[in-house]
Design a protein around this nucleic acid. Structure first.
Lengths: 236, 236
DNA sequence: CGTGAGATTGAGGACACTCAACATAGGTGG
DNA sequence: CCACCTATGTTGAGTGTCCTCAATCTCACG
């Protein structure tokens, strides 16, 4: 059901908080240890503009991160998956909103505590930096997609990423799309109609099949990769 | 001439490398200290795919960071200014290309040395993390721009950013645009024609004036800010 | 079996792109 | 010193991709 059953794209680490700190403080006040938290689909972890009181490390599930324009236009800047760190900001206000897409399990750290760890725990900042560096690289790829790719290229790129995420990298088996057309559209800078139409076209061309709306099977992976990289999808 | 004469958007710090390390090693082999390097406009600091041998800290000038698609389409993912850290990658290959826009002065660190500092110098990773966090926030804003803003909104946003960069935040005085229409277009996900036309329209509407191609004066800042945030620019 | 949210499909339109001509400015060489 | 040349930028005409508006379909759920 969840897409992170297999390989995680983000950095893998069994625990973000150093053992030494985790144990030491937990004895004393149990508030230093992270609190495990469950979040239902559609629920908000935090909203842009709120006081940034907590940082979350995703243990399970998918969270969409997005920003809104005053008139309601939305851009999803990324989907956080297992291992992702969300809610960490340089300042004291969240820069974006975070809402669960699937059932989510997350470790919640207070921002104060998190920042203390950054300053004091050896190697901690280094590990968080590695995560952010990865996020930054993903963000750059997404900028290329949003600024320069066609609708078909965006969809193809997205499907391949999803496929990699589910761990079906080499096989052609199908997988579940965990988010709605609306989420896909706002992530790829398109409308839901264009997303739907483009998927239909890929299906007509036998590049993918769609057993149902949220189920995809990549039939011709090579072709899909060509399209993702800029080989035009014929009008037909 | 250069736009970073005033306030830098990025984190301000007089030196990235800790004094202790700087001095200590420099005595021994002078290769630990950063090498100051000058780069002429149009020259490349490094290219996507190259072995990531060095990390640069910009001391002066502007550098464009970009990625290319196989067919030549280009997306400029950001402009690095004074204080920016470029060329730092998690892996061993540059993820994007970097080319000087203006005359540039940069401190060059070997990647090996830089990574050693990250692991060993106290507080160093913490400071680099702060920089990357800032870059990440900027990247998210740019995703909103690329995915959801109209041409006029993109140009307005860009001009305001440039204005802030030159330190003319409150005054309405003019400033120099350091990059070409082509760079602007590839940064904003537009074509040079659309950039040109949109600037002309802002000029006709008395929101800006253009004494010459690379010189702008913001005449009606309030209106420009409205447009940047989504208030439509009328057709005629 | 009715309802409603999400997805698909269709028709028409708009915004930004493409192709092309022209303008401007800086630099070079006769 | 001026004519020429090339870069870069502007403007125009026409087009196309994706958007908007709207109807229909699907499916889960009560």
């Amino acid at each position: 059901m969840h897409i992170q059953s297999g390989v995680a794209i983000k950095l893998q680490f069994s625990q973000l908080i150093p053992e030494t700190f985790k144990g030491a403080k937990a004895d004393k006040a149990s508030q230093t240890a992270a609190v495990q938290q469950r979040v239902r689909p559609g629920q908000t972890l935090f909203a842009e503009g709120d006081d940034a009181g907590a940082v979350f490390e995703l243990a399970q599930g998918i969270v969409k991160l997005y920003k809104l324009l005053p008139d309601g236009r939305r851009q999803i800047t990324g989907f956080a998956t297992t291992g992702s760190l969300i809610g960490f900001t340089g300042g004291d206000i969240y820069q974006y909103s975070a809402e669960a897409v699937t059932d989510v399990v997350a470790s919640r750290y207070s921002s104060v505590q998190f920042n203390r760890l950054l300053d004091e725990a050896p190697g901690f900042a280094r590990r968080v930096l590695a995560i952010r560096q990865n996020d930054f690289v993903s963000a750059q790829d997404q900028m290329v997609l949003l600024g320069r790719k066609t609708a078909a290229e965006r969809i193809a790129t997205f499907l391949l990423h999803l496929s990699a995420l589910t761990g079906n990298g080499m096989r052609t088996s199908g997988f579940h799309i965990p988010m709605s057309r609306s989420d896909i559209a706002d992530y790829l800078g398109l409308t839901i109609e264009t997303v739907s139409r483009t998927l239909t076209k890929l299906k007509r061309d036998r590049i993918i099949s769609l057993p149902e709306a949220l189920e995809v099977r990549i039939v011709n992976r090579d072709r899909l990769e060509e399209i993702a990289e800029g080989d035009a999808l014929e009008a037909a």
